[in-house]
Design a binder for these strands. Sequence first.
DNA 1: GGCCTTCCCTAACAAGTGTTTGGTAGGTTA
DNA 2: TAACCTACCAAACACTTGTTAGGGAAGGCC
Lengths: 210, 210
Amino acid sequence: MGDHNGTVPTKKKPQVTASPARRSELLGTAAEVFAEQGYNATTVRKIADHAGMLAGSLYYHFDSKESMLEEILRTFLDELWDGYDTVLDAELGPRETLEALVIESFREIDRHRAAVAIYQKESKHLVSQERFAFLADSQRKFEKAWLSTLERGVAAEVFREDLDIRLTYRFVRDTVWVAASWYRPGGQHGPEEIARQYLSMVLDGIAVRT
Amino acid sequence: MGDHNGTVPTKKKPQVTASPARRSELLGTAAEVFAEQGYNATTVRKIADHAGMLAGSLYYHFDSKESMLEEILRTFLDELWDGYDTVLDAELGPRETLEALVIESFREIDRHRAAVAIYQKESKHLVSQERFAFLADSQRKFEKAWLSTLERGVAAEVFREDLDIRLTYRFVRDTVWVAASWYRPGGQHGPEEIARQYLSMVLDGIAVRT
DNA sequence: GGCCTTCCCTAACAAGTGTTTGGTAGGTTA
DNA sequence: TAACCTACCAAACACTTGTTAGGGAAGGCC
């Protein structure tokens, strides 16, 4: 507690000591409530209820509701880019890159379904806030990775060239991520199986070839 | 007005007199704020600001914030089903039905972009409330229409039969409606052009045919 | 034993929320 | 002019919100 440095107290002191295990456990329940009810509609008391404690007690582990949201999204995006960078660094062909990115995306949905749902619902309002600037960074990087993959594919004549490439990008991107709104881990289809079927539709279409 | 029946006053009197034109004008601005900020994050004072009046004045036209949301969604769904029913009653072939439904959907996005965005973000939490039971009705009807069209297509051998039909349904559905999150009316592509490209991707895929 | 750390509770706070009530300016009708 | 209607304002209401401060129980360590 001793704020014995003579400078500015740097805003606030967060929690003094807190076990990281309990933190991420609470973040998990918070993420599920956020995903289910929406961030703004979720009160800290609801989160506390789901965690079996009272509202004020949350502030032993976190210093604000918003910082919970930030940590949830940061953790998710960090792991996501771990997987994406691995794929991109492998320098596969465009079609193989696209397939690997889609598969990786469904794996992330499988692992972070709540965070993905939150990201989809809330990121649009959040990007403008300075605190969540990392969301915009991620989106730019994301778009660049996908667009270059698509362009490479068109150049290599493995993707159709008669399609608007930005429209195609949004199509593929949305197609993948909205799955988080209905996907439930432990269902009959694992993430790889769903990815396989999605890829089949995106690449070859749903119509019978004549 | 005159509550001269001797029974229970049936809760509340809404606004006594209000011009329908002003009502729908206010609903339009409310819808845009809801779409941009999210329903829960939108305060009635913000809506009033955008409309150039004070918060309390809204209650001359509407009797609650929630009733605004309900009217926005009801109006949208009514118009949507007008178009859908016209398509379905035409009894076209499965592929033509699918194309017509997609085109109609993008036209609705063009006309009711705000309402569609609201519907996508909020419908999930709302369906459980009794007041918004009509959302669940619409969803069931929607699913039935799409599934039967897909099944007809598989039977007629115009759609691939090696795909999970429910997965395909969600794929097509999401693919279409998420477009509302980025679509802006008056852009370089009109709704028909976007529908055409989407249909091309969904039906034939983005890969080059070999 | 006493001390310290961890984790939570109790109780309150100020700000913001949707909503209500009564009033009133300006136009329309008689 | 007087009565009336429409559409809004002004000011408050009861309640919920995120957040804070102080305290205390349980357990490990000296």
